[in-house]
Design a protein around this nucleic acid. Structure first.
Length: 617
DNA sequence: GAAGCATTGCG
DNA sequence: GCAATGCTT
């Protein structure tokens, strides 16, 4: 061992194999492994409960692996990563820092600053692309006595009950990731293509959280896939080949999401198609709440939303269904939906989710048409032909015959009665009818083009920007709802369908916050329709029924999922972290990803793997 | 009841 | 943009 002592800064590369930064540290001599928990730096993308739970487990596995190698993981609680790193450097006398690249807008800025500050402090900083194969097998030798770990709290008391259930379904940590990878590659991958249409099949990889936290090297995944590809091609196994290709595409999509995030650091908050900023999104917290709670009246959507809330996980197909419904039928601002995914998904991944929501929203140049509406009824019979998925997550519909399970509003009264379904009472009528959504969408698009033309005219006339009631057309996004508490009156069941829709014309995307746009849900007629349920009629999540594969039998306890997210809060953005990202992103922190361009990963080709990339889960 | 036309689903 | 389905006369 020569040289000095180096810091290896772990972030979302929580593995010891195939880890270039760690390998470099080992080569350089003594290694001090550090993880800094500084969630405040993430602005309003503070990791959600299930995501933090995963992190906690994963760090613990990493720590024990490092201990086996003769060192351990030092954790620091901080509001400023850079000063924490400096502190560790001072107390250990390290003179080098190694880390692997991240590509989300916040990391790009932070890592750039880290490099700058530490370099100015005489520290050699090197960063790496972690998509390379390394075998860093040497014994580490870190003197940690001068640098105590701090306890970082990733789980508070109130979360323990719910989190306990996660452990029955998932095994975080790089060693487990490796096992999961092998299990998938040797098993479900073969039938992956065949089964991908089923919402409820357990044939997805379930690798997305492992990949998000860097417990797996994507490079390794890629190599295994290629080996399978060659093997099955030689055997003439077309089904297997098709599956591999499909999976490779999803890996590609993940790469593409990093590419997009790096080159368009605003893509998590602004549409890539300029005219979409003139789209009159429906700012209706009642709709938003109904969607979150799985009370839209469309069984497939509702089943998905309840699964998400109860388990932190959703099949990719269903992610597409619920997000498409969110944007096209409810016409809610897609950033709200994205934020909710961020808060609730176990594999929440800013880059992948931004790509997914942008694609679904039709705000990508190569996305799907904006005026296309997917019909959850048809999608229901496609992805859940026997209604098993719906019955699992919507107990109130469990006795409904398959014929009506995806469109109970059409069912004859006697059928509903026999099934114990009372529409508008124990299950809502459709919150928005598809036909109404279609015409509303057309109107909105017309409006959008008018707004754009008006805006252009104003700019051409040399006037300062200003659009209708939007005095901040340049910088006013639609704020995240701050408070979801809404009065819901049981007596307003079967309220008249919404006849008016309140819209806001501001660009929801440009960073900077305002709360003045928020509409109280109870000011809207629609909210009463949403309130088809009494507030306390919490959905009972079915027990022991979560579909998962093989020996992992996740169980869901109704007590642990204390009701649906009716009091869910989206905090208004307070930081303007992302504002800086576009200016600083080219500061040399992260190299441009080689051999990647948007065309080679055309989104259309990858439909179905949008969220969390190779997550397909 | 066949042919021509329009609408809708879908990648 | 195409194919399938439904609707009209």
């Amino acid at each position: 061992m020569s040289g000095g002592c180096s810091i290896v800064w772990f972030r979302r590369d929580l593995r010891v194999e195939d880890n270039p930064a760690l390998a470099a540290g080992v080569r350089a001599g003594q290694v001090i492994a550090v993880f800094v928990w500084a969630p405040e730096e993430e602005g309003h993308y503070y990791p959600g409960r299930v995501s933090r739970w995963w992190l906690k487990q994963s760090l613990s596995v990493l720590d024990s692996s490092l201990k086996n190698l003769g060192t351990s993981l030092i954790t620091k609680r901080s509001t400023d990563s850079v000063s924490s790193l400096l502190q560790v450097i001072k107390s250990t006398g390290a003179n080098q820092l190694f880390f692997n690249h991240l590509y989300d807008p916040i990391s790009l800025v932070r890592d750039h600053r880290t490099k700058e500050v530490l370099t100015n402090n005489g520290i050699a900083v090197r960063s790496f692309n972690a998509d390379l194969l390394y075998e860093p097998w040497e014994v580490l030798d870190g003197d940690l006595s001068k640098c105590p770990s701090e306890t970082i709290i990733l789980e508070d008391e109130s979360e323990k009950g719910s989190n306990a259930l996660l452990a029955r379904a998932w095994s975080p940590g790089w060693k487990n990731a490796d096992k999961a990878l092998a299990a998938f590659m040797n098993g479900p991958l073969l039938e992956y293509s065949k089964n991908r249409r089923k919402a409820d099949s357990a044939t997805t990889s379930f690798l997305s959280p492992h990949l998000h936290f860097g417990e797996l090297s994507v490079r390794k995944v890629f190599h295994i896939l290629r080996m399978k590809q060659v093997l099955w091609a030689n055997e003439g196994n077309t089904a297997g080949e098709e599956s591999v290709n499909l999976f490779l595409k999803s890996i590609g999509l993940r790469e593409y999401s990093r590419y997009m995030s790096f080159n368009h650091p605003y893509s998590h908050e602004r549409p890539l198609l300029g005219h979409l900023k003139f789209f009159p999104w429906v700012v209706d917290e009642g709709y938003f709440k109904a969607w979150r709670q799985g009370r839209t009246g469309y069984p497939l959507v509702d089943a998905g939303m309840r699964e998400l809330w109860a388990t932190g996980w959703l099949h990719d197909r269903i992610r597409v269904v619920v997000s498409s419904f969110f944007v096209k039928v409810l016409q809610l601002p897609w950033r709200w939906g994205m934020k909710y995914f961020w808060d609730t998904l176990l594999d929440a991944d800013l880059e992948s989710d931004a790509l997914g929501w942008q694609y679904i929203s039709g705000t990508l140049p190569d996305g799907r048409e904006f005026d296309r509406i997917d019909n959850p009824q048809f999608e229901g019979y496609k992805f859940d032909p026997n209604g098993e998925y719906v019955r699992r997550w919507l107990p109130e519909l469990s006795r409904l015959p398959t014929e009506w399970i995806h469109h109970p509003w059409d069912a004859p009264e006697y059928v509903l009665q026999a099934a114990g379904v009372e529409l508008g009472s124990n299950y809502p009528l459709p919150i928005v009818k598809i036909d109404a959504a279609k015409s509303r969408l057309q109107e909105a698009l017309t409006q959008m083009w008018q707004n754009e033309a008006a805006s252009r005219a104003i700019i051409e006339n040399g006037l300062e920007e200003g659009l209708g009631d939007s005095s901040e057309a340049d910088g006013a996004p639609i704020a995240f709802p701050q408070d979801m508490e809404m009065e819901m009156d049981e007596n307003t069941l079967r309220a008249a369908p919404t006849t008016t829709t309140i819209r806001h014309y501001e660009d929801q995307m440009v960073p900077s916050m305002t709360t003045s746009l928020i509409i109280r849900g109870d000011e809207e007629s629609s909210s009463s329709e949403v309130g088809n349920f009494a507030e306390d009629s919490r959905i009972e999540v079915p027990i022991n029924q979560m579909a998962r594969t093989g020996n992992m039998q996740p169980q869901v306890d109704a007590n642990a999922t204390t009701g649906l997210p009716d009091s869910y809060h989206l905090q208004a953005e307070s930081s303007n972290t992302s504002r800086a990202s576009s200016r600083e992103r080219d500061g040399g922190v992260v190299p441009v990803i080689c051999n990647l361009n948007a065309r080679s990963w055309k989104v259309e080709d990858n439909f179905g793997f949008l969220f969390s990339g190779p997550s397909l889960i």
